[in-house]
Design a protein around this nucleic acid. Structure first.
Lengths: 170, 170
DNA sequence: TTTGAAATTTGTCTGGT
DNA sequence: ACCAGACAAATTTCAAA
């Protein structure tokens, strides 16, 4: 069920346009991709059903919301057992400051991306919500100078990519 | 221009609903928030103009796109001078595997979140695109077991928050 | 600034190619 | 699978409060 899905060039084109602006109308979508609007509807509905499209998210500016300081917290949880890490993750996820939580390989078990108002707020967060917890063995804080969101997420080209004059299968 | 913006309770309510589903219609939005649809339109347009809302993003499932393996790469760039790091960041941002690039405080200058097809692909990426570059002094790779996106990003409550029975201003 | 209703644009469905 | 057209529903405008 988590396996990958076959996407033809039309699907890819749709996804590429929608990732630039997820509210493009089906009419514009159709014009850009070169199929009829009703076909777009069909395709997009299929992509949602197959789980490729998970949903639509609003992209907000943290600074404009008074959360101008962002940081990454590396957290060691000891002992690293299910009955401890389950509640830990749930608690951290519920913090209004948390943006993303990663469970990682390596010596640092978790990486938490947080957005706070200022340094005072960050200090409070680290002391009260992380190091105060018994299962948290160590927290390392790194501030984020700048962050870039990269291009759209697209499937990798097949290993034996088709060259220009390649394999006429007729 | 990056300063925070005053948001009244209606704006906050709108943002909270839209972050759960950015395609909620203005009609439903109006019903949930308790104002007229045309007011919602006005408010949302204002939020876009003021830069609080940056855009609408499609949320895709990397595994369904054949990118089932994600990792975080910590990168040291030496010497850390503008004429080296500028092109470095641009090159990394342009990689189809890159999802986010962070410039950080601390010994690791950059953290790059990547999505790849498999281990072979990850090895290729690290060797060919990172360690092969002269300015890259060191790369540390950590795999992502699991990742949680956290609740909506909302402004922090004001320091002197209004208590329950507070300040009847009439 | 907000509203309610009119005008316009979109989303959705049906049936045909 | 795709397309075209028709209907329903949503968005957007606008005059008035």
């Amino acid at each position: 069920m988590a396996d990958s899905v076959v996407l033809d060039p039309v699907d890819l084109h749709l996804l590429r346009v929608l990732q630039n602006d997820a509210r493009t109308t089906y009419r514009d979508l159709a014009a850009q991709v070169g199929v009829a609007p009703s076909t777009c509807l069909d395709r997009v509905a299929r992509l949602r059903r197959s789980g490729v499209i998970l949903g639509h998210r609003l992209q907000l500016d943290p600074a404009k919301l008074g959360r101008g300081l962002q940081a990454l917290l590396s957290v060691q949880v000891r002992p690293h057992r299910r009955e401890l890490v389950g509640p830990f993750v749930e608690r951290i996820r519920a913090l209004p400051e948390s943006r993303t939580v990663f469970h990682l390989t390596g010596p640092d078990d978790y990486l938490v991306h947080v957005a706070v108002a200022d340094m005072t707020d960050l200090q409070r967060l680290v002391l009260d919500e992380f190091t105060a917890r018994r299962e948290v063995a160590r927290v390392e804080t790194r501030l984020i100078f700048q962050q870039w969101d990269c291009g759209p997420l697209l499937p990798p080209p097949p290993p034996g990519g088709a060259p220009a004059g390649g394999s006429p299968s007729a």
